[in-house]
C-alpha cells in the first residue's frame, strides 16, 4: 500500500493556539475543575453529615474567628477584577499588560497564602481535637492546596512571560490560569459560609 502523504491543503497559516473552548487545555482545566468541585462537594457533605451526629456544633469549641477568613473572602473577590482584566489582555495577546496582570496576580496569590496561614491559626481548634476539628481542617486544607496550585502556576507563567519563552500558546496558558483562579475563588464562597457562618447559625 502506498503510504506517501498527499497534499490536500497547506494549513501552515492556521494559528497554533486558541483561547477558551477552542483550546484543549481549557477543556482539560474544566475537567479537573469538575473533579475538584466534586471533591469539595463531597467534603462539604461530610461536614453536614458530621454536624448531624452531634447536638451542638461546633462541639465544645468556639467557631473560627471572623477576621482572616472574611479578609480572604474580600481579597479573593476583589482579585477577580485584575484576574478578569488579565484574562482580557491575554486574549488580546498584549504582552506588556499581561506581564502587569501576572505580577499583580502573583502578589495577590502570595498574599492569600499568607492570610490562609493565619486562618489556620484562627480556627480555634486542632485537627485532632474532635471530628469537627478534623473536617474544618480538611476543608480549609483542601482549598489551601488549590491556592498553592494556582499561585505556583501563576508564578511560573510570570517567569515565562518575562523570559525568552513567550510564544502564542503562553497567552492561552494565561487565560486558562485565569479560568482556574475564578474556580478557586468561586469555591471559597460556599466554603467560607460553611466554615464561618454555619457554626454560628446552629
Amino acid at each position: 500500500m502506498d503510504q506517501s502523504p498527499r497534499f490536500a491543503a497547506d494549513l501552515a497559516h492556521l494559528p497554533t493556539s486558541a483561547h477558551g473552548p477552542r483550546s484543549l487545555t481549557w477543556w482539560g482545566t474544566l475537567g479537573f475543575i469538575l473533579i475538584e468541585g466534586a471533591g469539595f462537594a463531597l467534603a462539604a457533605a461530610a461536614y453536614f453529615y458530621l454536624m448531624g451526629q452531634t447536638e451542638t456544633w461546633p462541639p465544645g469549641l468556639a467557631p473560627p474567628d471572623w477576621l482572616w477568613g472574611t479578609l480572604q473572602l474580600v481579597l479573593t473577590l476583589v482579585s477577580l477584577i485584575p484576574n478578569l482584566w488579565t484574562d482580557r489582555v491575554a486574549h488580546a495577546d498584549d504582552l506588556r499588560k499581561v506581564r502587569i496582570g501576572l505580577v499583580v496576580m502573583s502578589a495577590v496569590g502570595l498574599l492569600t497564602l499568607v492570610i490562609r496561614a493565619f486562618e489556620f491559626g484562627a480556627l480555634n481548634c486542632r485537627w485532632d481535637d474532635n471530628a469537627y476539628g478534623s473536617i474544618v481542617w480538611l476543608l480549609l486544607g483542601l482549598h489551601a492546596t488549590h491556592l498553592i496550585t494556582d499561585v505556583g502556576d501563576t508564578l511560573v507563567l510570570t517567569v515565562l512571560m518575562f523570559t525568552r519563552h513567550v510564544e502564542p500558546r503562553r497567552f492561552t496558558d494565561v487565560t486558562d490560569n485565569c479560568v482556574y483562579w475564578n474556580f478557586v475563588v468561586a469555591a471559597w464562597v460556599p466554603l467560607w459560609a460553611l466554615l464561618y457562618v454555619v457554626p454560628r447559625l446552629v
Binding site: 485537627w127 481535637d129 474532635n130 469537627y132 481542617w137
Partner: peptide, 27 residues
C-alpha cells in the same frame, strides 16, 4: 473523588490523629 476523599480521611485518622470515623470524638 468520593473514594479519594474517604481514603484520605482514613489515612489521616490513622497517621495524624483526626477523628472522621471515631464515634468517641464525634466521628
Amino acid at each position: 473523588p468520593a473514594v479519594m476523599v474517604s481514603s484520605s480521611m482514613l489515612i489521616m485518622d490513622r497517621l495524624i490523629g483526626t477523628h472522621f470515623f471515631n464515634p468517641a470524638e464525634g466521628g
